[in-house]
Design a protein around this nucleic acid. Structure first.
Length: 476
RNA sequence: GCUCCGAUGGUGUAGUCCGGUCAAGCAUAUCGGCCUUUCGAGCCGACGACCCGGGUCCAAAUCCCGGUCGGAGCACCA
């Protein structure tokens, strides 16, 4: 009997209620460029649109002028392009304020929304007690008037809000009569000072999800109660509610993802910019040598569950390794180099394959003079025992005795001995930046100097080489 | 305060909706071996899991109830 292993490909589960093409969206706020966490929703949405056909809308949610960094308007589409996410339409919410106002007026006329000028604390207290605020039953005409006044920017001193009527006794207090618009001070990067009464995310999202014809919305579990709130809008208008799926949040260890912290860090010089190696922004990870395919495979493999999970750098790096390994020629980089002299060695030509098992890729060749000086890492030197024989990879064997290396033989030993890498004396200084911002300093073999790109430095790790003297560590 | 969700090996997951093909798949980690020279890449192999209790059923990782544990979110950010 032969046991056949069934090859199981990781596959995202199907979406519910798919009838024909889907319309989906991703909706980042433009507080900065996209990061690793964002890439998940982008790729997952993209995968489903690829599966079913349809539209993928990028909707930039810039309805809070205090939370916008203008660079995001250009960086977000670039990040998505790099991730190979196929956006079919871009919608910017700040283009649509008039639409939101119009829908708000309709809701006021339906007695589904009202203007309120209660103090924040008073309003909250009433809500917690399940009591209506005195403004709740004011006639639509009066509300429309007040709404228009605020939209027109009159009565600057008060802090009016537009509230959506839901259920004042709803078991979840946060679902009870929620705020749809509030006044925000500050200049909007795209609309300037034209508007000051801004829609809350729950309002603009509900309107746009309908107006843009969304069929399926997948988003984080942090939106569960928002979905409930937004459904009130759909019901007031009699709109068809999209199919929602809420996935669990992924916590990404050892990462800095909060744009506010990143911006502060950039200002203070802790980070060199959005693409600083210490950050997990898409632009940084791209610069560091991560591949777009890695993001996609990782997120598909992780699946789409309602449970929260933890991101695994081990697995992510392992996937990336699969994508970069075959393209990465090997070179010797000796970190913390120590020059050693080999006694009694003959002149030898060392011929090292650029890629093990693929001679067609070529060789690195070095003529090593008799009794030459070479570099090895301090770590290797410290670990050599007196009397030990070791192999200098693709060169010859040496024996270490009382502080001196003596040539032993060219042919590889039959017995197992330690194999270490080395660099010829004419190697050049080279620096590698680590993901924590520290630097490894050493020497790189001469033939590795000219070429830039992704390489594996043997026994060290994969490095994205950006110049003749500098590279960025990717992972081992 | 309230609402919601989940529990599969060290880690990340597939399977759970529609119970049998699951004596549980994949990946990663670890360990071992192999590449007639990478301790760190690659290839091969091994190890290793269905939270607990009860119920339904011929049959439960899968359905129901209880418990325990864990997580998340919300109240003028998105």
């Amino acid at each position: 009997m032969t046991i056949e292993k069934k090859e199981q490909e990781h596959r995202l589960h199907d979406l519910k209620n798919v009838n024909g093409p889907v319309v989906m969206r991703m909706a980042p706020s433009p507080s900065g460029p996209l990061h690793l966490g964002h890439s998940r929703m982008a790729i997952l949405n993209d995968e489903y649109v690829k599966r079913y056909g349809g539209q993928l809308i990028l909707r930039i949610e810039d309805t809070n002028p205090q939370n916008i960094d203008p660079v995001a308007y250009t960086m977000i589409p670039e990040d998505l392009k790099w991730l190979n996410v196929n956006v079919t339409q871009i919608v910017i919410q700040s283009d649509r304020f008039e639409l939101y106002y119009e829908k708000a007026r309709e809701l006021i006329r339906k007695r589904a929304a009202y203007m309120c000028t209660c103090e924040v604390d008073t309003f909250k207290e009433l809500l917690m007690a399940g009591q209506a605020c005195p403004h709740r039953d004011i006639e639509p005409e009066s509300n429309l008037e007040k709404f228009q006044e605020v939209v027109d920017g009159k009565n600057r001193d008060a802090s009016p809000v537009l509230i959506i009527k839901t259920d004042i006794a709803h078991p979840n207090p946060s679902v009870r009569d929620w705020i749809a618009f509030r006044r925000i001070k500050g200049t909007h990067p795209r609309t300037g000072n034209k508007y000051s009464f801004y829609p809350m995310m729950n309002f603009s999202v509900a309107i746009d999800d309908h107006e843009l014809g969304l069929t399926h919305v997948i988003r984080g579990s942090d939106h569960i109660s928002n979905t409930e709130k937004q459904k009130y809008i759909f019901n007031y208008f009699g709109w068809k509610i999209p199919e929602y799926f809420h996935y669990g949040n992924i916590s990404i260890p050892d990462s800095i993802l909060k744009t506010s912290i990143i911006k502060k860090g950039i200002k203070e010089g802790i980070y060199s910019g959005w693409d600083d190696v210490k950050l997990q922004t898409i632009c940084s990870m791209a610069r560091r040598g991560y591949q777009p395919e890695t993001f996609r495979k990782y997120w598909i493999d992780s699946g789409l569950r309602e449970v929260n999970a933890e991101f695994s750098w081990d697995i992510f790096n392992s996937i990336n390794r699969q994508f970069i390994d075959s393209g990465a020629d090997r070179y010797f980089f000796v970190k913390n180099p120590v020059p050693i002299k080999i006694a009694d060695s003959p002149e030898v030509m060392s011929r090292i394959p650029k890629y093990q098992g693929k001679p067609e890729r070529g060789f690195r060749e070095y003529m090593i003079k008799a009794s030459s000086e070479l570099f090895i890492t301090r770590e290797d030197l410290e670990n050599i025992k007196d009397g030990e024989k070791i192999r200098l990879k693709d060169l010859f064997n040496v024996r270490y005795n009382e502080g001196t290396f003596r040539f032993s033989e060219i042919e590889p030993s039959k017995e197992k001995i330690k194999i270490i890498h080395w660099c010829p004396s004419e190697s050049k200084p080279f620096k590698v930046e680590r993901p924590d911002g520290s630097f490894d300093e050493g020497v790189l073999e001469p033939q590795g100097i000219e070429r830039n790109g992704i390489f594996q430095f043997e026994r060290y790790g994969f490095v994205k080489k950006v110049s003749g003297e500098f590279g960025i560590y990717i992972h081992n």
